[in-house]
Every structure is written in C-alpha cells, then in structure tokens.
C-alpha cells in the first residue's frame, strides 16, 4: 500500500514514466560519450593489442597542428553551404510549384517519384552514380560523347569530382526539402491566404508577408536537419571517390573514419569525434538561438 502511494506521487510517477528513456539515453549516449572523451587522452590503437598509453592533450595538440585536417574542415564547410543551399532553394521552388498545382493530373505519382531518391541508401546511390559517371561504360559519358563533347572523368578529375558528388547529394536530398516545404506551406492558415488574395497582393508579397512567417519554423527545422546530416556526410563520398582524387572530396567525417578504421588510431579519432560533437552542439545551439530571436523579441514587446 505504501509502495503504491509512493508510486502514485506525481513526481515519482513522472520519473518512473521517463525512466526507460533516461536509462536508454544514459546507456547508449552518456556512457559512450564519456568513454570517447576518456580514450581521446590516450595513444591507443585498436589493433596492435598494446595497452593504451596516457598522453594527456597530445591528440588534441596533434589535431590543432594538423593542417590537412583543417583543410578538410574547410572543404566540409563548403560542402555544407553548397549542398544545403542548393537543396533549400530547389526544394522550396519545387515545393511551391507542387503546392500550387493541387489539381494537376498525376500530381501524386509525380510526388512519389520525386521522393524516391531520398529513400535510397547513400551506398546504393553512390554505386549507381559511380557507374553512371564511369568514363568508359557510364551512360553520362555515352551521352557526352554522342553530343560531341568528349569523355569526362567526373570522379577522377580534380576540377569535376567535387561538383559531381555535390550533384548526387542534391539529387538525393532535394526531395527532403520539397517534403519539408510542403509541410511548411500546409501550416499557413487558409484564412490569411484568402485575405491576401482578396487584397490582390502580388505573389511575391504573399510569399514574404503571409507564407514565410508561418512556414519559417518548419523550413528552419528542415535546414537544420539537412545541415547536421550534410556535416556528417561520409558514406556517399566514401563510395563514390573515397575522398579523392587526392583529397579533393575528403570531408571531415571521412577523415575521422580513415583514422579510426583504416589507420586504427582510436585515441586521435576519439579526440576528433569529440571536437566534432562540440561543434555540432554549438552549431545547433546558435541555430536555435537565431530561430527563436524574433519570438523572444515579440515576447519582450508583449510583456513591456
């Protein structure tokens, strides 16, 4: 009886309800992150069988002085800006087109086909496009040769490789932004849209004054998710170019993978993984802060 009463206390009951989630979070998130931080202070190779050797901040110092790694960070930043930028612009444009064409015949089929690339695993998409880009047997080069443009080594030419991989990422993830845009546009109140129509506002003013203020939050969530995903891109690049030619397409997640599972240097890669985690947290916090700026401002104005 006492136990039951204890359990039924509001605070205890709430704690019990969230306990499974907390345990899961602790076991699968907190413990691995703490282990990761611990390993980052050691010179530790996964495969030599030698005991880990404590080296303090040695791995972090190495990372600071690793010019190649900073180049890789720079490349990743370009990658994020270019891919997320193109996907956002294209996604919003295509989303608006679909939004405004409710009665278009075959709309549902077109939308289903449009979303297909997003459902593919990056590994499959990588293999698919690697074959299409192939200089001798690839269909893209077949077309360029047929058009008299010659043969292009899309994935081996330093001037083309980055763009070729960006194209595949855009092909895969623009549908995601279309989906987000459609969801965002769906959140715009019909009454306001009808009022704008009655007021005969031009389309761009309707977009800026009615649609965007309502759709902004969902769009920002979409951009945030894509930014974080884009920052972590590894499998697509690994499969298409392996980071090459040279390091032309080597993103920071691939560098991390190489150090961890090619060179088996767990200490160094744990330090880098921890830095990346901090960067992702900082980035998300800034993003959310900016996203909520206007709301906070409105709240301040309202309370004043």
């Amino acid at each position: 009886m006492r136990v039951r009463r204890f359990i039924e206390r509001p605070r205890v009951f709430a704690l019990l309800l969230i306990a499974p989630a907390l345990i899961f979070f602790f076991v699968w998130n907190i413990i691995p992150v703490l282990t990761l931080i611990g390993v980052s202070f050691y010179n530790y190779s996964m495969v030599t069988g030698m005991p880990p050797r404590y080296i303090g901040l040695g791995n972090y110092e190495d990372i600071v002085y690793s010019f190649r790694l900073w180049e890789s960070f720079g490349r990743t930043l370009s990658w994020v800006v270019v891919t997320v930028g193109i996907e956002t612009v294209l996604g919003i444009a295509i989303g608006i087109l679909f939004w405004g064409s409710v009665r278009l015949p075959g709309r549902r089929l077109a939308l289903t086909l449009l979303f297909t690339p997003m459902l593919m695993t990056p590994l499959a998409a990588g293999i698919f496009f690697r074959l299409m880009y192939e200089p001798s047997i690839g269909i893209i080069n077949y077309v360029t040769r047929w058009a008299g443009l010659g043969t292009f080594s899309f994935l081996s030419d330093r001037s083309l490789a980055f763009a070729a991989v960006v194209f595949v990422d855009v092909w895969m993830w623009t549908p995601f932004m279309v989906l987000i845009t459609l969801a965002a546009l769906g959140s715009v109140p019909k009454a306001e849209l009808e009022a704008a129509e009655v007021d005969r506002l031009p389309w761009w003013r309707r977009l800026v004054t009615v649609v965007l203020p309502h759709a902004k939050f969902i769009l920002m969530i979409g951009i945030l998710l894509r930014t974080i995903e884009s920052f972590k891109t590894m499998d697509l690049v690994f499969n298409m170019t392996g980071g090459g030619p040279g390091t032309t397409t080597e993103l920071v997640a691939l560098t991390l993978w190489r150090r961890a599972f090619e060179a088996f240097n767990l200490g160094w890669s744990s330090a880098l993984a921890f830095i990346l985690l901090l960067m992702a947290i900082a980035f998300t916090s800034i993003f959310l802060f900016v996203l909520n700026l206007r709301r906070r401002q409105q709240e301040r104005e309202a309370s004043a």
């Binding site: 043969t151 994935l155 081996s156 170019t241 090459g244």
Partner: peptide
C-alpha cells in the same frame, strides 16, 4: 598512357 580515371 592509361584510360581516363586512372587515379582510381
């Protein structure tokens, strides 16, 4: 002297 894409 190699076909295009030799680097891979």
């Amino acid at each position: 002297y190699m076909p295009p894409g030799a680097i891979n």
